[in-house]
Amino acid sequence: MRDTSTGEGPAPRPDAAPPPRIFHLSFPASAISVRSSLRAALARFARVMTPDEAGTLELILAEVLNNIVEHSYRDTGVGTITLSMVRDTQGLSCSVSDDGVPLPMTCLSQTDNKDSRPSPESLPEGGFGWFLIRDLATNLGYTRDGNRNLLAFRLPLAPMLVRAAG
C-alpha cells in the first residue's frame, strides 16, 4: 500500500502521505479551559478521524483533563496542564502533564480488568472517569517525575487513507 520506493513511477500526490499532525497546548487547570482546549484539539484532528473516533477522543481527553482539574489540582483553579498529541499511521499518541498531587496508583492498577466498572445498580454518581479512560484508551502509562505527573496513552484509529468526506 505505502510506496516507500524512490525514483520510479510518478511522484506521490501531496495527499498520499499526509504530514504528521501535531497538537501541543498548555492551559490553566479549570473546567472552562478544558472545554476550549478540547475544542482546539478536536478541530486539529477532526479531518483525520471519523466522527465516532472524534467522540471517543473527546471523551477520553475530557476525563483525563477534568480529573487533573478536580483531583491533581484539587479544584483550586491554579496550575497548568500541558497536552501533546501526535497523529501517526495507527492512531493518536497523547501525553498529558501537570504539577499537581501524585495520581493514586489505584486509578491505573485495574488497567487489565475492563470489568472494573462501577456497578450500575448501586446508582453511582462518580467513578466512571477512570473506567472510561481504561476502557477506551490503550497503552496507558503513568510516571511521577519529580513534582510532575506524566500520563500517556494511545487511541487506535482507522487508517487515514481515503477519507473523502473530510
Binding site: 476525563e63 454518581e125 466512571f128
Partner: peptide
C-alpha cells in the same frame, strides 16, 4: 452532543 462522566453523575444524582 457531549456528555462526560461528570454529566452522567449529575443525571444519576437527579434520578436519585
Amino acid at each position: 452532543e457531549f456528555l462526560d462522566s461528570s454529566g452522567l453523575g449529575a443525571v444519576v444524582a437527579v434520578m436519585k
